[in-house]
Structures are given as C-alpha cells and as structure tokens.
Amino acid sequence: MKPIYIQGVEKRFGERLVLDAIDLTIAPGEFVCIVGPSGCGKSTLLNVVAGLEFASAGRVLVDDQPVKGPGPDRTVMFQEATLFPWLTVLENVCFPLSLAGVSAEDARARAMGMLRLVHLSRFASSRPHELSGGMRQRVALARALVGRPGVLLMDEPFAALDAQTRDAMHIEVQRLWLEFKPTVLFVTHNVREAVELGDRVAILETLPGRLKEVIEVRLPRPRDPNDRDVNILSARVNRALKDEIDKVMALERDPDKTGPGIPPRGAGGHI
C-alpha cells in the first residue's frame, strides 16, 4: 500500500471556488478525519478522492496512480446506508464481490464472515427495510470492507444515528479498522467523533475550502469519548473551527458585507 497524495486540489463549481489548493498526504492505514463548517467542501474533497467528482486543478494519487474515476479499490459510506432494497442483507454484502467476479459460493462465505464481524449474521436473509438505522449502517460497513479495499471513504456515516448507536458504531469502526487497516478518510461535523476516531484531524476553512490546520491525535486506542485528553483536543479543534463557523454565520446574516470575493489566505474569521 502507498499513501494517498492529495496534491494542489482545487475545485470550482462554475465561477465558485469551493476547494483551494488542498495538499494532504495520508499514510497507508492511517485514519484521517476532516472537519469544517457546513458547505466548506468536505464532501466535495471526499468525492474527488473517490473519483466521483473531478478536481479543477491538482490531482489525487492512490497507489501512485492518479484517480480517474470511481473504482472498487476505494469504497464509500454515506450518511444513508445506500443498501439495495431489492436484495437481502447477505446479497447486499455479496454485491461488490460478485461484481469483482468472485464465485457465488465464495462470495457468500466471505459476506457471511463479514456479517458475523458486525454481529448481523442472524439478519442475513432480512431485507434492509427490516433493520434499524444503526444495523443498516453496519451492513453498509460490512459491504464496504468485504472486498478488502485499501481505502475507505466515509461521509458523515453516523450523522443520522442516535447518540448511543453512534457510540456503538465508533467501537465497531475502530475494531474493524484495526483488523483490516484500510486507509480511512472520514468526514464529520462532530468534533469529538473526529478526535475519538482519527490519527489526525484536518480542519477545513471555508469560502473557499482550504486546509487550515491538521491536528495529530496521539492518544492510545481504544479511546473513550469522555476521556480527558479527548476533551482537551476537542476543545482545541472547536476553537479552530469557531472562527470558520462565525464566518459562515456572518455571511448568512449579511451576505453583502463580505461580498462574493475570496478573503486573503490566512484571514481566518476576522471579517
């Protein structure tokens, strides 16, 4: 496995500059969380790495190859589980394997093993709509990992879950990540979640999205979200974010004041 190189990535939607000169290298097997105010381009960045969206400038290298489109070497998880309602849980987890040409028998065995890992083997023949939201996300996690991808891209995968279910999911994700060691890019709004899960937390500033700061989380795992060190680091990330959030709020209150122009680099929240 090689690192993921995000090199000078810029993204425009029409005239609008959404991502500006993002440089980030993610080591193989590293867990990097991305936080930032709403609309700063987190999902866009993730989609560029996924190959679902193309950078206007710069490039992303995965396994030393520039990303040219979506592909099964990188899998995704979204806020909604995006399971296929016409398939059973097991068939859903088999799906990526069957696309990869794995024989049906092998695929079933591997999918079943994966379902056991997320404690859902009893529900193998259920349909997605018969499961709770948290169970569905666990199936999605099993489906994302069953093909042993090198890279797992997650866009607020637990944002729609209740707090208890989310805590349980954090434990699952850490356990599976330690077991399979994919490189993870994890987008979230939840600062504590980012600090709990990430080896590093990348903070994006907004308008346009630039990398503001990358904070290393050198804490032993598994981490407890109520741990003192987690809280201290969360507070630090929150402070860095607050400027950005104020900036968004100010703009929403009075869009004419700042105009459509791009604030100079490093202007932070001092509008």
């Binding site: 979506p70 099964p72 995704v76």
Partner: peptide, 23 residues
C-alpha cells in the same frame, strides 16, 4: 433513484450494463 445509491454502486465497480441492469 437516490444519487448516493448510484455513487455507491459505481464505487463498487458497477459500470455500463451492470450499472443499468443490476442497480
């Protein structure tokens, strides 16, 4: 069809007629 369903399918390697007929 939810866009993310299609995106997830494309990330799993579904393209062309596979994407059409199986997703």
């Amino acid at each position: 069809v939810p866009p993310n369903t299609l995106r997830a399918a494309r990330m799993m390697g579904a393209r062309g007629h596979v994407l059409y007929f199986r997703v």
